[in-house]
């Protein structure tokens, strides 16, 4: 029993790390521009399929490096052409447009790569269990958690230590002042969007290794990311991280006792959080 619970807590941690990675990208974009990117799941799927296409040529590690970058480039183009027109407008319009994009992405991946799900080869070194008693600690799962942790650490370093990061954080608080101080806000928003999509692409490659590939892979993962952001508190990146891990572990533990409520439990958590702390766990009064 203990082992079963331990297994599901760890499983929840893996899933939670994953939600957090996706939710952090969404949060970055939302905080700076007020755009809810419904197409985030579509970008995730795109990242996964790009990796799948590259895999025979560059191998697992190559795909892991290149695919998220290519996805981010697509994101930067999409921002320039479409998303840019939505800034300052009612959130209704950004929701609708990115919603339409999500449709196009899902259908597009189905059109290009087929509706059947396909397996994603991961190196044999990552598939073995680390120890026979803790059979659930497969290398890939541990690797995922470590990689997500590294990516999150990298993101927070970027945001606190580099000029770009500081500008993004300043822009989150007051974009107008940042603009007056001489920062090119158009480029800032563009790069920030690309950064968010990079995280989605990375999540996509990792998801491909864990779940295999299907065109709906992104749409099934976007809702938990929304919940993660709300539980953690809108406007707070550490909150988003915390929210993602919390709902992942909560749904992992629920799987042991009440499997059919695996998803529902996150929404129950969200309801409770909203009731007790309407701003979320780490959210602050202000922008949202």
């Amino acid at each position: 029993m203990t082992q079963l619970i331990l297994f599901n807590v760890f499983n929840g941690l893996v899933v939670g790390a994953f939600y957090a990675l996706m939710a952090l990208g969404l949060s970055l974009i939302l905080n700076l521009t007020g755009v809810i990117n419904f197409a985030h799941g579509g970008f995730l799927a795109l990242g996964a399929y790009i990796a799948y296409t590259l895999l025979p040529y560059v191998g697992f590690w190559g795909a892991l490096v290149i695919a998220p970058v290519l996805t981010a480039l697509v994101g930067i183009v999409v921002e320039r052409v479409l998303i840019r027109r939505l800034y300052g407008r009612d959130p209704l319009y950004s929701l609708l447009l990115t919603f339409g994009l999500a449709f196009i992405f899902e259908d597009g991946t189905r059109f290009i790569w087929g509706a059947q799900s396909v397996p994603y080869q991961i190196p044999a070194s990552l598939t073995t269990a680390l120890s026979p008693s803790l059979f659930f600690l497969t290398g890939y799962r541990v690797f995922m958690v470590v990689l997500v942790a590294a990516a999150v650490a990298g993101l927070f370093l970027l945001l606190t230590r580099t000029r770009l990061g500081m500008r993004i954080r300043a822009g989150t608080l007051d974009l107008e002042t940042v603009s007056v101080l001489g920062v090119n806000v158009r480029i800032l928003r563009n790069l920030n969007f690309g950064l968010g999509i990079y995280l989605a692409g990375l999540a996509g490659v990792l998801a491909a290794g864990m779940l295999g590939l299907q065109p709906t892979i992104g749409t099934s993962l976007i809702m938990p990311s929304f919940v993660a952001i709300i539980v953690g508190g809108l406007g707070s990146l550490p909150g988003t991280l915390l929210g993602g891990i919390l709902i992942g572990v909560a749904s992992g533990v629920t799987t042991v006792f009440f499997p059919s409520a695996t998803e529902a439990v996150m929404y129950v958590m969200m309801g409770i959080v909203l009731l007790v702390l309407p701003r979320g766990l780490l959210g602050e009064e202000g922008r949202f």
Partner: peptide
């Protein structure tokens, strides 16, 4: 048809 519907969303917003 999903792509076309998605396109309608984008065009209506723009």
């Amino acid at each position: 048809w999903m792509s076309f519907v998605g396109l309608v969303f984008v065009l209506v917003v723009l």
